[in-house]
């Protein structure tokens, strides 16, 4: 560490005058200063990486909460206008009472879409359809962090413009990222005609890693129209 040059003492009226004048700081060999600088740069990079870790955990959650807030209002507006959501726009709401969670689901599973919340795989079935409603979400505290805590028969509720669709968990699986059949319209026999009304949630597994996918499968249990109010499962656990 260099200290401020002693020459500053020239401004002190009580100075003995011994240090008067602009003195240079004590000379140090060039290599020592260079090593010092390299050390400071390395320490700084270390701090930046730590800060990035904090951003990945808290910063992204904060951004997503902010985005979800805006999407909530956008969704009501889209529904009021009966508009078809484009890529990245909100398409519905998803509730998991067991995890005390509620999200606005966006249309699409690109990075930009998933940064805002859970995303619906494009071109696939919608809530209530015979087939498979496939939704992806990040394994982060504000999204599918505790998805592994779901148990069989737990309700997962989808809200669309016209109704409530109460799904119940059928099973959890861990698969390789290449096993696309889990989001097929008929996941048991990909390519065959779908016969069940399924919903599939995918996220990365394990936490902080991405070499597997955690897959939750649920099946439609009942449908309730918007006029009948909110479904009882929303308050159940």
């Amino acid at each position: 560490m260099d200290y401020p040059p002693p020459g500053r003492r020239a401004f002190d009226p009580h100075s003995s005058g011994l240090h008067a004048g602009a003195e240079a700081p004590p000379a140090r060999p060039n290599w020592a200063r260079r090593v010092n600088t390299i050390g400071e740069v390395l320490v700084t990079l270390g701090l930046v990486v730590l800060l990035f870790g904090a951003y990945e955990f808290w910063g992204k959650a904060w951004r997503m909460d902010r985005d979800q807030h805006g999407l909530d209002r956008d969704l009501d507006r889209l529904w009021a206008a009966a508009a078809v959501p484009r890529r990245g726009e909100p398409i519905g709401r998803l509730y998991i009472p067991r995890l005390h969670k509620k999200w606005v689901v966006v249309n699409g599973v690109g990075a930009a879409s998933l940064a805002k919340g859970p995303g619906l795989y494009p071109g696939r079935d919608r809530a209530g359809d015979v087939g498979n409603v496939a939704i992806a979400g990040h394994r982060m505290p504000s999204v599918f962090w505790n998805l592994d805590r779901l148990r069989t028969a737990d309700p997962i509720i989808a809200e669309t413009r016209t109704g409530w669709y109460v799904y119940r968990v059928v099973g959890l699986r861990v698969v390789r990222p290449t096993q696309v059949e889990v989001v097929a319209r008929n996941p048991d026999r990909p390519g065959a005609r779908p016969g069940r009304r399924l919903m599939t949630l995918t996220t990365c597994n394990p936490k902080f890693e991405n070499y597997q996918r955690l897959v939750v499968r649920a099946e439609l249990s009942r449908v309730q129209s918007k006029r009948a109010g909110r479904p009882a499962e929303l308050s159940a656990r």
Partner: peptide, 12 residues
């Protein structure tokens, strides 16, 4: 963030 593979969550 978008350039890093930490949170690929889809099957493809």
């Amino acid at each position: 963030d978008g350039l890093l593979p930490f949170d690929d969550v889809t099957v493809e």
